[in-house]
Design a protein around this nucleic acid. Structure first.
Lengths: 358, 358
DNA sequence: ATATAAGTTGGGAGCGCTCCCAGAAAATAG
DNA sequence: CTATTTTCTGGGAGCGCTCCCAACTTATAT
C-alpha cells in the first residue's frame, strides 16, 4: 500500500536498504525475494531475516516496470450491477470463486463494473486503457462485447470467458456449463411428466447462456416431435419483473409447463401465477435455472437446474493464470456439469409421493 | 493492459516515441498528457493528434514509480461473499455505488474479498502488502477489523469506512446511516401502533450497524418506559436461517411485534411465522431493515427501513479520493438519511385503510 | 534600441526494481 | 599444487515515466 508521505515520513525502504542491512548487494536481495537459485543458504537466511524484521515488501511499480507483469487480473462485468444483482447471487458467487483462486495464487483482482449510465464503448475503452492487468476474466456477455473481445485477441491479451463466446471461434478459452444440454434435459423431464404444451421464458438473448438454453428447449421439443410455437417463447431477461410479465403473456396460450431460463424470472412467473390463482404444478409446471437459495423456499419449491457458479469463476481464473504464466498456451473450453434439482414445481414430487407411499 | 509480448511484438510505444513523431521532446509530451500549463496551443494540438492517432496510453507502472500514486483504490469486504451475499443485494449495490464514482474520477478498483477459509489476519496482511492502492474503502466490519484499521492509521494510508468504526475515535472518516435513530424510530412506530411486547432480532453484533440498531431498539423502549427483556433479544446475524431460528425461539415469549435488524433475517422470520400459521401483522407485527427488493413481495409486504446503500458507497469513495488527492484533509463522518417504508407487516396499513374508507 | 520578464522547450537525474555480465569464491579434477 | 569448472556475488544498464533546472524564444517595459 502506498503510504501517503507527509514529508517527514521516512522514505519507504528499498532493495538497496535491505542489502546494506544484510551486508550484501541489491542483486542478492532480489534473488532471495524472487526465490532464485545461486544464493548460498547462509546468505539467503541472513537476507530473509532482515526482510522479515523490517517487513520489507518490494515496490510493485518498479517490479512491474521491468517485468511487464502486474500479478493482477481484471474481472469484467458488463451491464450494471444494479440490473444484474437484484436479489441475485450469481455475480457475488462468481466473484467469490475468482477471489478464492486469486488469493491462493497471490494475484490481485481489479473489478470493472459498467457504470449505470455508461455506454459499452466507453466502458471497454476504459478497461483497454488500464494497463495494470495481466489478463481478464470476462464474466458476462452482451452483443456489445464482440468488438471488445476481438480487440483483446488482436492485442494478444490473455483472457478467459465465463460463458461461451459470442463468436464462432475456437481461439477463445472459456469455462461454462452445457446450457444446451441442461435445458434439453429439463424440458425432456417436463415432457416425461406428461406435459405437452411447454412454453419457455428465456434468459436474456443477447447472452450466450440465454441463447443456448433456448436452443436446448427447442431441441427437446424437436426430439419428441412436438411443435415449436413462437408465441410460447418470451424473453425474461434474467430478471424478475420481466418474468412476471412474460408469464402473464404466456397464459393466454394455455401452457401446461414453462421452462424458465433463470430462477430470477421464475420468481416473477410464480408471482404472476400466485396472483392469478393458477396452481403450480397442478395447472402449470415450472422449471427454473440457477438454483438460487431463495427458490428452495418458494411455494411450491422450485425445480431448477443447478450450475456450479463459484467453480466457473475459480476454474476460469486458474485457466487465466496458467495462460498468463505460460504454463498452458493452448485454448481450452471447459464445460462443468449441471444438475437438475427436482423439487415440487415440476410435478414430479406430487406424482411420485403417493406412488412411493402405496 | 499489458500486451503479452511474444517476441516479435513491437515494443509498446513510450513517451519518447510520441515525442519523436510529434517533433518535440519527451517532457513536452508529458506536459500535454498531464494537462500541464506552459505548452503552446500549437504544440499541444500537434502532440494530441499523434497521441490520438496511435492510441498512446502512458505506462502506469513507470508513472506510479515516480509519482507514488496508482489511481487505484481498494475495496475491502471482510467475511466471505458466500455468507454475506446469500440472496442479498447489499454488497452488489455498494460496489455499484463505488464503481460509479471510480469511473467518473478515473480510478480503478481493486476488490479484496476474504476467502472462504481464510483467517482474518492473513487476509488483512495480504491487503497491507499490496502496495498498488492509494487508499481503501472498508465495506464491512468484524471484531477482527480493529487491528487492521489501527495499522492503516499508523501507516497514514487514507481510508474511509462504510460504517461507524469499531473504535472510539474521531480520527476515522466514514459514511453511514444513523442506525440508532432509524431503529429507535422504527420501534417507536410499533409502539405507536399499540404494540407492547416488542422483541428484536438483531443484525450481527460484531458489526457496528447491528450494534447501533440494537441500541436504538433499547432506546425506544426506554423512551416509552417499557422494560427491556434479554430474552426478547436474539441475534439474527444479518442472515435468513438465523432469522428463522430466532423467530421460533422468540415465539415462546409471545411478542406482539419484532424489530428485525436486517430484511434477510426478516425473511427468515416470515418463513417461521408462515410455517407456524402465525398471522402477520395481526398476531405479530414486523419491521425489517434495508428494503431489499424482495421484501416488497412477501406476504404480507414488509415494513422496513430503507437505507441508501449505493449512495453510501459513492460518498465514501468520493471522500476517499478527496483525501488521496488532498483536497480534504479533515476527518469527515457523514450520516445519510434513512426512510421508514411502511407496508403491511407492521399493521399500520390494516388499521388505516378501513378508516380511510369510512 | 536594449533590459527585463514571461512563456516555452529540452535533457539530465532518478524512482526501485530485474536482467545480464563480469569477477570472486568455492569445489572438483588433474 | 595448479588448472578448470561450478557456484555465488556485485554492479551497470535500463524499464518509462515525472520533476527540475537550464536554455531558448517571445512579449512587454523602458
Amino acid at each position: 500500500m502506498s503510504v501517503d508521505g507527509n514529508g517527514s515520513n521516512p522514505r519507504t525502504l528499498n532493495l538497496e536498504d535491505i542489502a546494506e542491512k544484510a551486508g550484501v548487494s541489491r542483486s542478492t536481495v532480489s534473488r532471495v525475494i524472487n526465490n532464485e537459485p545461486h544464493v548460498s543458504k547462509k546468505t539467503r537466511d541472513k537476507v530473509m531475516a532482515v526482510i522479515q524484521q523490517v517487513g520489507f515488501v518490494p515496490n510493485p511499480a518498479a517490479r512491474m516496470l521491468v517485468t511487464q507483469r502486474t500479478r493482477t487480473i481484471g474481472v469484467v462485468i458488463s451491464q450494471s450491477f444494479g440490473a444484474i444483482f437484484e436479489d441475485s447471487f450469481y455475480f457475488p458467487t462468481l466473484l467469490q470463486g475468482i477471489a478464492d483462486v486469486t488469493h491462493v495464487q497471490d494475484y490481485a483482482m481489479l473489478l470493472w463494473v459498467q457504470e449505470s449510465s455508461e455506454d459499452a464503448e466507453r466502458f471497454y475503452s476504459r478497461i483497454l486503457q488500464n494497463r495494470l492487468m495481466d489478463g481478464l476474466v470476462i464474466a458476462s456477455t452482451t452483443d456489445k462485447t464482440i468488438p471488445f473481445i476481438q480487440r483483446l485477441v488482436e492485442l494478444q491479451t490473455p483472457f478467459v470467458m465465463v460463458e461461451r463466446p459470442p463468436l464462432h471461434t475456437d481461439r477463445i478459452s472459456y469455462v461454462g456449463v452445457d446450457n444446451y444440454q441442461a435445458a434439453r434435459d429439463a424440458v425432456a423431464h417436463l415432457i416425461s411428466l406428461g406435459r405437452r404444451r411447454i412454453a419457455t421464458i428465456t434468459g436474456s438473448l443477447v447472452n450466450m447462456d440465454g441463447q443456448d438454453r433456448l436452443a436446448g428447449y427447442r431441441a427437446a421439443l424437436h426430439d419428441f416431435g412436438m411443435p415449436i410455437q413462437n408465441e410460447m417463447i418470451v424473453d425474461g431477461y434474467f430478471r424478475r419483473t420481466p418474468g412476471y410479465i412474460a408469464m402473464k403473456q404466456l397464459l393466454q396460450y394455455q401452457p401446461d409447463a414453462v421452462f424458465i431460463g433463470s430462477d430470477q424470472s421464475a420468481l416473477g412467473a410464480l408471482d404472476a401465477l400466485n396472483e392469478l390463482g393458477v396452481r403450480v404444478p397442478d395447472d402449470i409446471a415450472l422449471i427454473g435455472f440457477d438454483d438460487l437459495p431463495s427458490v428452495r423456499r418458494t411455494t411450491p419449491p422450485l425445480t431448477t437446474v443447478r450450475q456450479p457458479i463459484g467453480d466457473k469463476g475459480a476454474q476460469a481464473t486458474t485457466l487465466l493464470i496458467d495462460m498468463i504464466e505460460e504454463r498452458s498456451t493452448s485454448v481450452r473450453q471447459i464445460l462443468l456439469p449441471t444438475q437438475l434439482v427436482i423439487r415440487s414445481s415440476c410435478g414430479a414430487m406430487l406424482r411420485s409421493r403417493p406412488e412411493a407411499a402405496s
